[in-house]
Write a protein that binds this DNA or RNA. Structure first.
Lengths: 225, 225
DNA sequence: AGCTTTTATTTGATTATTCTAAAAATAAAG
DNA sequence: CTTTATTTTTAGAATAATCAAATAAAAGCT
């Protein structure tokens, strides 16, 4: 079949629906949540969901939850693949800071050319993760999940390595930079404060830091064995 | 001043007007010509010219000729700069064929990020020409015009691009049309015949043609580096 | 100049995306 | 199981970009 060409807007909706339903499998992906994610109004989302339904990219009945179809999910994954490969290029090749790459990749991910991405991937030597530690889907749309946990769920005493973030906003990333926390940074959970859910973590140099629950909920780690 | 953000469409119009008025300084840049260039209808162009006039990117009165303003020209040049730098990247770094790069660059040229282009240019080691031999404008919008020479003065073996004519008579121009030689046509000097000063030139398709001295004295070319 | 051809603009309509305000449906609370 | 609150959809309208058909202006040709 001929490759379906979608508009920037349509692609952004697919990506938003995909990431929302990945992040919160517990909640249904609602019109409101999508609207908030892509900075638009719920009524606009309703219209677009109709359109995407006609194109068989989502299954959706009004007042019911939204779900990506196989095709829709595949397309979303390929957009994410492009986004992450471009991030590797921006960070690794052009030396952008890891907090600067997102906005540009947001634009580059919509360039239509399969060849371009294949060659870019080859040039970048088939990276497995983007600068935020997120895995890069393969050309055939397979996404291998790394064993990752949210920092807030980790037991006291565990040694960890930061492998990614859930919040990719510039504010958060810049704060991390300030704290000198990046992908690969090794930390340890010293104590969990029951009172407000904050944690005390320590670094290699034994410096300690108290981080809020909101903070620890947005840091992805893997346990160092 | 804050950077003016234009839509893809607006940028394409500016680029089209720029290249048309460069190519045919003799003719006015007409609505029809623009329409043909960007594959749209003259009526659509009229509307857009109005819009661009309001934004002070072109000067235009109906039924009169169009001209870019200083700002409009600057923006056009910066788009062309982006286009050509991306072409260098696609050809030189990702190893695309020189005939494959245009369509992708056509999309990439609209990515909005000054930093991106500055860093890309640095990564590419400040190339002066794109894969088609066209010069790359500098970051401050200066475009060095290609060095024009008369075809009769060119040494054997050189690859050239036709950039203009000295004789603008209808007879000559029609003859050129018949030979399928136009602005932009790429040729190569195969041999110079000492006897009568004629030359043998070859085309992309390897067809050869013997042209008289009178002919070659009226063709302007630039050497493709 | 006067007629014809070409070129350019206006008019009215269409598609995509978006919004506000109002209405309707669903979910939550008592 | 009503009433209230929340969520979602509808209705109506706006903007950007586009086109086809009708009209107007300019250019070309006797």
């Amino acid at each position: 079949m001929a490759p379906v060409i979608l508009s920037f807007t349509e692609e952004n909706y697919l990506k938003a629906i995909y990431t929302l339903s990945e992040k919160d499998k517990t909640f249904d992906t609602s019109t409101n949540r999508i609207a908030e994610k892509i900075n638009t109004k719920p009524s606009t989302v309703t219209d677009m969901l109709r359109k995407l339904t006609v194109k068989k990219l989502v299954t959706y009945e009004k007042y019911k939850k939204v779900q990506l179809t196989k095709t829709g999910e595949q397309m979303a994954i390929l957009i994410i693949r492009k986004h992450r490969l471009w991030e590797v290029f921006l960070h690794g090749t052009l030396k952008f800071g890891w907090d600067e790459v997102h906005d540009i990749a947001e634009q580059l991910e919509h360039i239509h050319s399969e060849q371009l991405i294949l060659r870019l991937e080859n040039f970048l030597k088939y990276p497995k993760y983007d600068p935020h530690g997120d895995p890069i889907p393969s050309a055939n749309g397979k996404l291998v999940q790394k064993q990752r946990s949210v920092l807030s769920e980790i037991d006291r005493g565990k040694s960890l390595q930061v492998v990614g973030v859930r919040d990719t906003s510039a504010v958060f990333l810049q704060y991390l930079k300030q704290l000198k926390i990046a992908i690969g940074t090794k930390i340890k959970v010293v104590e969990k404060i029951a009172y407000d859910g904050s944690l005390i973590i320590s670094f290699k140099d034994n410096n300690q830091l108290n981080v809020s629950r909101k903070f620890s909920e947005n840091i992805l780690v893997s346990v160092i064995s």
